[in-house]
Design a protein around this nucleic acid. Structure first.
Length: 457
DNA sequence: ACTTTATGAAGCC
DNA sequence: TGGCTTCCCTAAAG
């Protein structure tokens, strides 16, 4: 259901409500609003007039020149729709939905988020996968044959006992990406809105390492060097790709899509999706105009022409190479599609499959072990799962309703596979609709079994 | 304690 | 197509 529907579907209900409350709607509401905002009004008449005029601008901040309070019998005013008879908005840590709007979670009318069947049970309306894939010894043997690259061995994670709790503020702006070190459990990298890169060392909590000279703005994506995990590749909205030594912080630029600086927003290219193709020694990045760029990581030179992989002028937000068949590339972006490509014959319009979504796609990943499943996150509040890339890709195998639709200001959530789950059925994603943690509204992290859509805790 | 602003997608004309 | 408006569970800066 589109945003448009929020408005078109509901006026009837609104009218019913109004007649319910016995008040002659429009003016009363205006009074209500005004009364709510300005506590000490004097002149009723003028106030109402003022408000009606100013209402067009939508701003209720119109300050007044000394007016007395209006006494109104009516109960409550909804902060969301400004209508009477109900209240919406935050009440303590809990957000009360406006009943005039479609459900914020599943986008369907007739209920609010609180009683949304998808919220009560995430499995609602989801047909489980016919068979849960588990890794047999045969699978293991098969994968040993097929797998190009043996995954790096990581020692078992042991929580160090010298620190029970530590909070260190690394970033002054919002964090845009996080990455665990592939071999060192103590290290977590974080990128932020200003382009800074934080190196968190769990074993050295009193040291703070932040590199601020790598990028000029949003650090959108990072990947550890496949051959040398002391190096980190980063892509930024400043249009550059950099390679940074984690120890020294020394970085080199691999590519700059805006060599002539700021020439206006119509030409400024921003980089979002990034992926490393270890077999080919390639750095792949995708920009905000729909193009894919390739850089030879060793020779530090651009390879071939840029290829239009999504609708021209739209942002490509994600790139992922298939773990077993790295020539298979998965991309996703703002044109509502995730696309599968064969890198060996890469040109505009040549994608093997286009996976349609109702709205913008935040992420698309092949499953980490077999590479045969795909999970995508779209801001239509649905996680989509394709059980096999060799099967029918016309429609997803499952759509799981989950809260991650929000407008701007925040970095989108991306559902990611749990790399430790050999059955490739566990996915991790941040949730927008908050949960009440002792009075604080916090956004939880959800673990979801994508074969049943059940939440796992 | 208040307002402004950064900022993105979608829908409408 | 482009310009304008709406969406309105943010958070820092002014």
């Amino acid at each position: 259901m589109s945003v448009r529907a929020r408005r078109t579907l509901f006026p009837e209900v609104v009218i019913e409500r109004d007649t319910d409350t016995d008040e002659s709607s429009e003016e009363d509401e205006d009074e209500e609003v005004e009364n709510d905002v300005v506590d000490s009004d004097e002149d009723e008449e003028e106030e109402i007039e003022d408000q009606k005029v100013n209402d067009d601008g939508g701003s209720s901040s119109v300050d007044t020149k000394g007016k007395k309070p209006i006494t109104i019998s009516l109960k409550k005013v909804c902060k969301v729709c400004k209508r009477t008879g109900h209240q919406a908005g935050f009440q303590g840590a809990t957000y009360i939905d406006c009943p005039m709007k479609p459900c914020f979670l599943c986008k369907m009318p007739g209920h609010t988020t609180v009683n949304c069947p998808h919220r009560v049970a995430m499995e609602f309306g989801v047909i489980p996968a016919s068979r849960k894939r588990t890794l047999s010894s045969l699978d293991y043997g098969f994968e040993r044959q097929v797998r190009h690259r043996v995954p790096l061995i990581k020692p078992p994670f042991v929580i160090p006992d010298e620190v029970s709790c530590a909070v260190i503020r690394y970033h002054s702006r919002r964090v845009t990406c996080l990455e665990f070190h592939p071999t060192n459990n103590n290290i977590l990298l974080s990128g932020d809105k200003k382009g800074q890169l934080g190196v968190w060392d769990f074993g050295k909590v009193y040291e703070k390492t932040v590199y601020g000279n790598i990028h000029g703005c949003l650090l959108n994506n990072m990947k550890f060097g496949p051959e040398n995990d002391g190096m980190i590749y980063t892509a930024s909205s400043d249009g550059t790709v950099s390679c940074t030594d984690l120890e020294t912080g020394l970085s080199s630029s691999l590519m700059d899509l805006n060599p002539n600086g700021w020439q206006g927003r119509n030409s400024w290219r921003m980089l979002y999706g990034m992926e490393l193709n270890a077999e080919k020694g390639l750095v792949l990045v995708a920009d905000s105009f729909g193009f894919l760029h390739m850089v030879d990581a060793r020779a530090n030179s651009k390879i071939g022409d840029s290829v239009l992989i999504h609708k021209k002028g739209t942002k490509v937000v994600g790139l992922h190479c298939n773990p077993l068949q790295p020539d298979l590339l998965l991309s996703c972006g703002n044109d509502h599609f995730a696309r599968i490509w064969d890198m060996r014959r890469l040109e505009a319009e040549s994608c093997l499959h286009a996976l349609p979504h109702k709205r913008v796609v935040n992420s698309a990943y092949f499953s980490p072990l077999s590479g045969t499943k795909i999970v995508t996150t779209s801001i239509d509040n649905r996680i989509r799962v394709w059980d096999s890339i060799f099967g029918n890709l016309d429609t997803p195998s499952r759509e799981i309703v989950h809260s991650h639709d929000f407008n701007r200001h925040l970095t989108p959530f991306r559902a990611e596979w749990d790399p430790k789950d050999s059955s490739e059925s566990l996915v991790v994603i941040g949730r927008y609709i908050s949960e009440n943690y002792n009075g604080a509204a916090l956004h939880p992290i959800d673990f979801i079994d994508i074969s049943t859509a059940a939440q796992v805790n």
